[in-house]
Amino acid sequence: MPVISAPHAFNEGHLFVDLEPVLGCRLHLKCEGFNFAGSVKLKAANEMVEAAERDGLLTEDSIVVESSSGNLGVALSVIAASKGYRFLCVTDSRCNLSTRLLMEALGSEVHVVADLDANGGFLGRRIDYVRALCASDDRYVWLSQYTNAGNWRAHYRTTGPEIAGHFPRLDVLFIGAGTTGTLMGCARYFRQWHRPVRIVAVDSVGSVSFGGEPGRRMIPGLGMSMRPPLLDESYVDDVVRVEEVDTIRTCHRLARRGFLFGGSTGTVVSGATDWLARHDTGDLTAVAIAPDLGERYLDTIYQANWLQDLYGDEIFDPEEVPATSPRGKPVARRRAVGGDRGREH
């Protein structure tokens, strides 16, 4: 076991789960949640902070500021606490309560934006707030995960080679699209590899990252309300868009086999199984990247009242919905659709 003195020095990058016994399709899941930040975002956060230090942008008086829906905010909170920086995370009302409390427990400040932008999301408002802060006080240093090359470079250096080392005959790689840092870093790495790898981006319905109309998105993580500045579609072979209902069903299906993953992972796995059902002839080597674990979603996608309020009773198995379910009362025997019966198309 390693002996470390800083939390960002540990990041398990070589754990894969064979999902064939759970999902019935040949798919390996690269688990990125086993570090002190609990998500893949620790890699990008560490790369961006170290680059800012090398460039002389960060001093002992600096206040790191970043817009985040949650996971990057936690990762930067971990690194800021370790290095002695102040950190302010600008998030929005979709950020899970447990995530906000975690950032605050690590000593960070959290500002929650509640107003929607012109695209029906919060990102524009969050960025406006960050820019106003930086204009008002030169101590603020905005890392800008949306434009920072360190975001994708971290995965070019680590995530891509980690996958290649375990799967030298890789055929297709499924990657969730948020800022597209993970997507672009891995895609660039495999573009230069010794064999062609099909890169499939998985996006949320309602996101405008790859075009289309904006729509309501309640699960934080993947998707954007603007086109990601880092995105270069020439590196992407296919795009799969996933409804939030399917994200939830997949999360619950995995949880029933003991794998508690987060919303971003549920989206990626749902998109991957859908794509494989349409394309796999039984001989593809397929890997999907799981950005996070599920503990931070216990009061949202794993909480019956939250699901009912947003998606109605149709999200539940009909045979398990009680005749009455007063709000605020325990919802006995209720569970989300999915189980082990397979996804419905």
Rank of each mutant, 00 (worst) to 15 (best):
G266N: 08
T281Q: 13
Y297W: 01
G221L: 01
V331L: 15
N305C: 02
R327I: 01
D237F: 02
G107K: 06
R278I: 00
G271D: 11
D128C: 10
R327N: 02
Y297D: 07
A323M: 11
T159N: 08
A332D: 09
E233K: 05
L133S: 15
T158K: 02
A81N: 12
R296T: 11
A135N: 08
D18H: 14
D292H: 02
D92A: 03
G107F: 14
S98F: 00
A52K: 01
V17P: 09
W142G: 11
G178R: 02
G181T: 02
G282E: 01
G271H: 08
V208P: 06
L284M: 13
M184G: 06
I79G: 05
L298D: 07
R188V: 07
R241H: 14
E109G: 09
S136A: 15
T182V: 13
G206V: 04
A286D: 11
H28P: 05
S207A: 08
G70E: 04
G121M: 07
A336S: 15
T247Q: 15
E213R: 15
G211N: 13
L260Q: 04
F87N: 02
Y146N: 13
G124S: 04
V245R: 13
D115I: 00
N96D: 13
C31M: 15
S270V: 05
P229V: 04
S270C: 13
E32V: 08
A75G: 07
F174W: 05
A290K: 10
E109A: 10
Y235R: 00
G271Q: 10
I4G: 11
S98A: 10
L42F: 05
G263P: 07
G84F: 15
C95R: 04
V269W: 09
I315L: 14
A45M: 05
E320Q: 14
E109W: 02
D317M: 09
S68Y: 06
G211K: 10
D274G: 03
E344K: 14
R139D: 12
G342N: 13
G38R: 09
E66P: 11
G160E: 11
G176N: 03
T265Y: 09
L116E: 03
A135T: 06
C31L: 15
S204C: 09
